[in-house]
């Protein structure tokens, strides 16, 4: 019973915090550009205002265009329920299978790209296809990295993998470090940050499909996208950096877990943010080379696992 409570609490907490995280990100970027930047709470104001606006759809669009925002948000909420954040093990174990998570991320991606085509806009369409391409390029390395991590941990459940790695009893430490690195890189591409994507410029890039959204729909998609970023980072934390999360379900342990989780999250987003602002955009054509390099690292980890180190 307490697990269900934790799942609900962490999901609500995440929803409440998401605009703050993206707001801090924008603030930091402005500071690094030596701009004044928006207030930290700007994203809350944006969402509230968008919610009051008129919802505009293109004239040829169908129900897919209308369904996508709530579907994206809903899928992210389902993922949030099962992701171990405060706790070491997943509060809802049947939602924490790595294969399920990878394929569940494909559901919003499917509709995201579909809605882009549905809108009839060419910019949205190009963005939709690119979003799909990123999925195609990232998924093999992600799967291989997780495959190897799951094999050394003896389970495909995020919580169990985290518990094995967290107890430092893995038989293949080098393997875990290498595939953890590969997975981190794959996650970074998924985050949709520079050098692979530029969230503010909404034309022709991955975020392109957003250009035909407005009002409450746009609010929901924006919310869902920030939520996705946090979830992907939490995913990495849960498997490869589970240290400090609550092993026992006591109030003290959970409180420590929460604090540690927030610190880890802040640290990772800080690093990402610094990195993001230190690089320039890579040409979309060259994305393939970099993701294949990530795949190469994962292959390396795989061979190390076979070697048994």
């Amino acid at each position: 019973m307490i697990e269900i409570l934790i799942a609900c609490v962490q999901t609500l907490l995440l929803v409440a915090l998401t605009p703050l995280v993206s707001g801090v990100g924008r603030f930091m970027r402005a500071k690094m550009h030596t701009r004044k930047g928006p207030p930290i709470l700007q994203d809350y104001y944006d969402l509230a205002k968008l919610f009051k606006r008129q919802d505009i759809h293109t004239k040829d669009s169908s129900f897919v265009h209308r369904l996508m925002p709530p579907l994206f948000l809903g899928t992210m909420l389902v993922l949030a329920l099962g992701m171990p954040m405060l706790t070491r093990l997943s509060p809802v174990p049947f939602l924490a299978d790595v294969i399920l998570i990878i394929y569940l991320l494909a559901l919003p991606r499917f509709f995201f790209a579909l809605s882009a085509i549905d809108s009839g806009s060419s910019y949205a369409g190009v963005g939709g296809i690119r979003e799909l391409m990123v999925g195609v390029l990232v998924e093999p390395s992600m799967m291989l990295a997780l495959f190897v991590a799951a094999l050394s941990a003896g389970s495909t459940n995020v919580g169990v993998m985290g518990a094995t790695i967290g107890s430092l009893s893995v038989a293949h430490p080098v393997t875990i470090i290498i595939v953890g690195f590969a997975f981190a890189l794959a996650c970074y591409v998924e985050l949709g940050k520079l050098p692979y994507d530029l969230a503010e410029a909404e034309q022709e890039l991955q975020e392109g499909p957003l250009s035909e959204y407005s009002g409450p729909s746009l609010a929901m998609v924006k919310m869902a996208m920030s939520l996705k970023q946090i979830l992907v980072v939490s995913w990495f934390i849960a498997i490869f950096l589970p240290f400090g999360s609550a092993v026992e379900l006591t109030v003290v342990a959970l409180a420590i877990g929460l604090v540690v989780y927030l610190v880890k999250l802040a640290l990772i987003f800080f690093i990402c943010s610094v990195f993001e602002n230190a690089v320039s955009r890579v040409r979309f054509k060259l994305l393939g080379r970099q993701t294949w390099a990530v795949f190469g690292i994962a292959v390396f980890g795989f061979v190390f696992w076979i070697l048994g180190i």
Partner: peptide, 18 residues
């Protein structure tokens, strides 16, 4: 050769040696 090929080549060599 590209770095990707180099990485994978080294991995393959490692595997064969194993």
């Amino acid at each position: 050769i590209s770095p990707v090929v180099a990485i994978i080549l080294v991995a393959v060599e490692l595997f064969v040696c194993y």
